[in-house]
Design a binder for these strands. Structure first.
Lengths: 155, 155
DNA sequence: ATCTATTCGTTATGATCATAACGATATACC
DNA sequence: GGTATATCGTTATGATCATAACGAATAGAT
């Protein structure tokens, strides 16, 4: 079974000894998110939902009807992006949309009965998935990670 | 009265009190990566490079010529994705490609002189950018975060 | 009431991402 | 040698992502 060696024939360059990609938080965060996301898709894969889609459904479940724009902010998605996610969820009849009667700019998004039922099925799975992602950490480290990540993510 | 499919005056649902999206690591990791990535693009924005593109260049700088596939693994990108990144970098003459003479499957990727020069310009900026991303944390917390993220990201 | 600034949703463009399927090449084993 | 298996790069499909520009609707100030 051939596998290309991770060893390089050519020597590294000048500053290489004083710089490593692994020391950059962004790179570590990207890889950690990849792991968490793939765990989620693997766990809820049979429902054919992505992590952002699940987050959108979960937020609606928590908060009730929301304007598309506010929903986007609450799941950290730009207007152009939350739009596409809502369209896909709407196509699957997991959410429904209607115009706000008092503010005609707004599109109110809400879960359908099927959406509510799905979220209630998925929440326990997601909690288990989070536990799986955090499995490499010891008990005390998990709370610590939450605290640190929350500080980084705050706007 | 609202239609059945879109109704839901209730602000929050049953399980909402026992579940919060913020308690899911994946969501926090996604937002933290968003922040780190936007910091990087903001800092090196004038060079018109994305975070994955920078990571690719930095890895090549560290390791010297690599096959496209191995390069992808070293920056955590699937073959189909690293291909596109390499194509964009190649179009800008930051990397060059050639076939491996002993293994005709491989495409060897290496930095051009312009690529090397660019990376050496960017590395100090990236280090500063990492510091900015980590600014909300105290000194001791930064090392802790690295340790925790590394544990999560390891395959 | 009118003018201005802001907000909301849309459109367009381009760059990640993951996955599956495929041909070409290389290796392992007999 | 010859065959089964593995790897490499490509193609295709679909879902995120960010950004900029735009019209419609609202809110704020005077």
């Amino acid at each position: 079974m051939p596998r290309t060696s991770t060893k390089s024939a050519a020597p590294a360059r000048r500053l290489a000894s004083s710089y490593r990609l692994e020391d950059q938080v962004g790179f570590l965060l990207r890889r950690a998110y990849q792991r968490a996301s793939s765990n989620l898709v693997e766990q809820i894969g049979s429902y054919d939902l992505t992590a952002p889609q699940y987050a959108t459904l979960a937020r609606l479940y928590e908060r009730g009807p929301l304007s598309q724009n506010l929903l986007g902010r609450l799941v950290a998605m730009e207007p152009a992006n939350i739009r596409d996610v809502v369209l896909r969820l709407k196509k699957r009849r997991l959410v429904a949309t209607r115009r706000d009667p008092t503010d005609k700019r707004l599109i109110l998004i809400d879960l359908t009965a099927a959406g509510v039922a799905l979220v209630e099925q998925l929440i326990p799975i997601e909690i288990e998935c989070t536990a799986k992602t955090l499995a490499p950490l010891k008990a005390g480290q998990k709370e610590l990670l939450y605290q640190l990540l929350s500080q980084l993510a705050e706007r």
